[in-house]
Design a protein around this nucleic acid. Structure first.
Lengths: 244, 244
DNA sequence: GGATGGCATTTTGCATTTATTTTTGGCTGG
DNA sequence: CCAGCCAAAAATAAATGCAAAATGCCATCC
């Protein structure tokens, strides 16, 4: 397994850098958990790569116990898979997995939209409007990174307005898994759908302003389904590093 | 902490019984995980009870390492909460938590219904019909346990028909958390709503037969919201062992 | 008499050690 | 020369041991 030697070395470097910032909370294993999660999301390790715990322990400068605990949690979160007596692998998402993830995200966002319409304040709607127009400006400027950032903030604002912490946590969990996928599929693929997505966001804002729960529910679900279709289309056109 | 001595003793007994049945998969910590989860769901430990790991280790007859790993996973699943340097407690669901759980379940079931309408086969619809009429028979017989069992099977059938394993796993996770709540709130409270629930299930079957995704989506969500209202109403009338 | 500070006990968190399983390399037999 | 098997090495899983943090208790001081 030399193919990931470089990646593990990179991991070591990453840790050296992040050791400065007091990332985690109190306990060591939570700190490790956060670092590992971030590392996996950023896609620095190829899909399906084995995660030799001994090597990682040396990189992190810790013992194997807290690392194993962190891996168990990450497995429960769906970012790694644990093969009995054979260690951990980076979970490789098949096309089916990706389809399913988008569907669940669609259901969660739809729920968030419905609840948000029941609970959102005028001030929060104004804040979303602001984000929306900033995002539109980014769209006109063809500033993709800014667009993505604002896009994320809008969706997060809707989830927050749903007043449901359990939903927010679950949403974050799935968003994290999808990020792992999205980092692989380069963001370029979004350009195909950019105009369409922008129009959908107009509808999202409109439904939110009118506090129409059922409409926002439906729009957000279809919005995610369109994202899904685009992602799968991209994957078919670029089966480069696919690991199905 | 003598208040839970009896409960832990009961735990020990439980394990002795279950040690016979080959519950878990291969690895020891997964076996422990399953046992602990089942034990927590059954509500044998009071809300907020401390879980001293040393005591549990003796009960299970294992070392602390696999137990700690299992506890970390259960914390990620939301069944226990880990206080840094202060061990694990049984997570006590506040009224807000319960409200949130029902909302998320509503979103997930709604999604399942929508997807099921797109994917379900005629044979599967026939199977649901069969379950439905059996459930109706149980309703007429006032056979609550049978009714509950069939009710669960119908909802499970819809989730399975959604053809989304990720959704199914997530659904199970939340269903487990709610079971922990439901075991506390005695099932008697359902009798208030029994007729109403039965009528809702007529609509569910109808929408499924017509494969009307948007309708089933909405019906299932409202179905869960009515369950939520009933559960919270019960909780208000019976604040017995409430641990808010 | 009440409150505060220090000490002892208990409990958790991490590291180290031991054992079991898997894998790989080499060897032997066909 | 290839296939199957055995053995050694490596990796993982579990257990134990050690150190640090927290809680409870007691004594002393105000």
């Amino acid at each position: 397994m030399t193919e990931m030697g470089g990646a593990v070395a990179a991991l070591g470097a990453e840790i050296a850098v992040e050791a400065v910032d007091p990332a985690g909370a109190g306990s060591l294993h939570e700190e490790i958990l956060g670092k590992l999660r971030r590392f996996l999301v950023e896609g620095s390790l190829p899909d399906g790569a084995r995660i030799p715990e001994r090597t990682l322990c040396e990189s992190f400068g810790i013992s194997r116990t807290p690392l194993r605990e962190a891996l168990k949690v990450l497995a429960a979160e769906g970012l790694v898979e644990l093969l009995p007596n054979r260690g951990a692998r980076v979970r490789s998402y098949t096309e089916t997995d990706i389809r399913e993830l988008f569907e669940v995200m669609g259901g969660l966002e739809a729920l968030a939209g419905r609840l948000a319409c029941e609970n959102i304040t005028d001030a929060e709607i104004a804040a979303v409007e602001k984000l929306h127009y900033e995002m539109y400006a980014s769209y006109m400027r063809r500033d993709l990174p800014s667009y993505f950032k604002l896009n994320q903030l809008i969706h997060k604002a809707i989830v927050d307005a749903a007043r449901n912490a359990t939903l927010a946590v679950t949403y974050d969990n799935f968003a994290t898994r999808l990020q792992r996928v999205r980092y692989n599929a380069n963001r370029e693929n979004h350009k195909d759908r950019w105009g369409e997505a922008m129009r959908e966001h107009e509808q999202i804002l409109d439904a939110l302003q009118r506090r129409s729960g059922v409409e926002l529910n439906d729009i957000l679900y279809r919005h995610l389904m369109n994202k899904q279709a685009a992602a799968l289309r991209y994957r078919h056109d670029h089966p480069a590093q696919a690991a199905d």
